[in-house]
């Protein structure tokens, strides 16, 4: 069993409002990046293909295709560098890890859209 003191130690590093998205969603990840003195927001958009870990070690993987090349990026879910995660589209998936998408190209990478679940927000400005 996990010791309660470990949870207490992690508590201050966790988000007050957890990010809401699930595997299969198409998302925009807004990350704060420092350019010299100025901070600006960079957006990485793609499909969430996996989440792993718990507590402060929780990570999620986003996959997108950049000029014909598959690119995956992992983000620490609770990092203060992630300003927000915007859900663009809910995808209907039947497994927790979508690694099979790596072997697919073009039209085959599409996921069927599903209706928002209870308590989920309607995806904004569908592209």
């Amino acid at each position: 069993m996990r010791h309660p003191l470990l949870d207490a130690a992690e508590a201050s590093s966790l988000r007050e409002k957890p990010l809401r998205f699930s595997v299969g969603d198409t998302v925009d990840v807004h990350t704060r990046i420092l350019e010299g003195e100025k901070e600006r927001i960079q957006i990485f958009s793609g499909v969430v293909i996996a989440t792993r870990g718990s507590g402060t070690r929780e990570m999620f993987t986003v996959r997108r295709i950049v000029s014909g090349q598959g690119v995956e990026r992992q983000f620490p879910t609770n990092s203060p560098k992630i300003a927000k995660v915007e859900v663009k589209r809910h995808g209907r998936v039947r497994r927790a890890k979508l690694f099979y998408l790596r072997d697919r190209v073009g039209k085959a990478t599409r996921l069927r859209e599903r209706a928002p679940r209870k308590g989920e927000v309607e995806p904004k400005d569908k592209a």
């Binding site: 470990l6 992690e10 704060r32 402060t56 203060p80």
Partner: peptide, 10 residues
Amino acid sequence: TQVFEEDGSR
């Protein structure tokens, strides 16, 4: 475990 610094480093 791990905790975050303000600059995002773990």
